[in-house]
């Protein structure tokens, strides 16, 4: 690890002002991705700004229409929150399948979302549920948030503060995890609200995406039969040592089918 300065502000405004006074600062949330990245010397921030003492980033609020989760909530808090489990069990299940217990104790939803790893789990929930991302500057619709591989709409110095998920009638998240890391080789989040189905896929492409063809078919007839002929072309899918793009294309159908069967 290259050396850096370490700062621990207690408010968002303090964090932002430290950021703007530094040469090349980086925020750190749980550090489950950033610390390994620093160890490999793939990043060389002049300063690390630790967001863990900012209490306003840690609340979970469940209202009639939506769940709002603070950016610094850990995967463990999200998976074990009784209020979330009652309102949106698919989100609790998703959080309980991330990494391993030690990682879930430290990793945060805000860190995961800001990192935009193509194999992260949360992006599928955000896109399927049509979430909103609140930042220190503005509110961003999920459709505008994920730009590409490790790339989001966040500007320099902008901090994700909370994420709100509209509550739906039914939802399911199914993933094919990498057996070592737990990352999604392919993950499918399917949600249903007022007869509108949204299918979001993570892990398969450079960023999370919807399959509108499947959504239309499932909205008309909610069965695995209605989507059996839909194939997502492997041309734009990821191919790496974990899985070829052809295999990922195949897994998309398998994971969506499992989600459909769970909700049938």
């Amino acid at each position: 690890m290259y050396n850096f300065n370490y700062k621990k502000p207690s408010s968002i405004s303090e964090a932002k002002s430290i950021f703007s006074s530094c040469d090349d600062a980086s925020y750190i949330a749980g550090g489950m991705t950033l610390i390994p990245t620093l160890k490999q010397r793939l990043a060389m921030p002049s300063d690390l700004i630790d967001l863990s003492s900012i209490s306003e980033l840690k609340s979970i609020k469940v209202e009639e229409e939506c769940i709002t989760v603070g950016a610094m909530c850990s995967h463990k808090q999200i998976s074990e929150s009784d209020k979330i489990r009652t309102a949106l069990p698919a989100l609790s299940n998703l959080a309980s399948m991330i990494g391993d217990p030690q990682v879930r104790n430290r990793g945060t939803i805000g860190g995961s979302v800001a990192n935009s790893d193509p194999s992260a789990d949360y992006p599928a929930a955000l896109l399927s549920l049509n979430a909103k991302i609140y930042t220190s500057e503005r509110t961003i619709d999920v459709e505008d948030f994920f730009i590409g591989l490790f790339e989001t709409a966040l500007n320099e110095g902008e901090i994700v503060t909370k994420i709100s998920f509209p509550i739906c009638e039914k939802a399911s998240y199914k993933k094919f995890p990498n057996p070592a890391s737990g990352y999604a080789v392919v993950g499918a989040f399917l949600s249903m609200k007022n007869d509108i189905i949204r299918v979001a896929i993570t892990g398969a492409g450079p960023k999370v995406f919807r399959i509108k063809q499947m959504e239309e078919k499932l909205s008309k007839s909610f069965s695995t039969d209605s989507i059996k002929d839909i194939v997502v072309s492997h041309d734009d899918l990821n191919s790496d040592l974990h899985a070829s793009s052809e295999y990922r294309s195949h897994l998309i159908n398998v994971m969506v089918n499992r989600a459909v069967l769970e909700l049938t």
């Binding site: 370490y6 621990k8 750190i28 550090g31 489950m32 610390i35 390994p36 690390l48 630790d50 863990s52 463990k76 217990p101 030690q102 990682v103 104790n105 430290r106």
Partner: peptide, 17 residues
């Protein structure tokens, strides 16, 4: 760390202050 299991290779000493 505060009675939660964590991996001490992936946290800075400063974060545990």
């Amino acid at each position: 760390l505060n009675s939660e299991a964590i991996k001490s290779c992936t946290i800075l000493a400063a974060q545990a202050a």
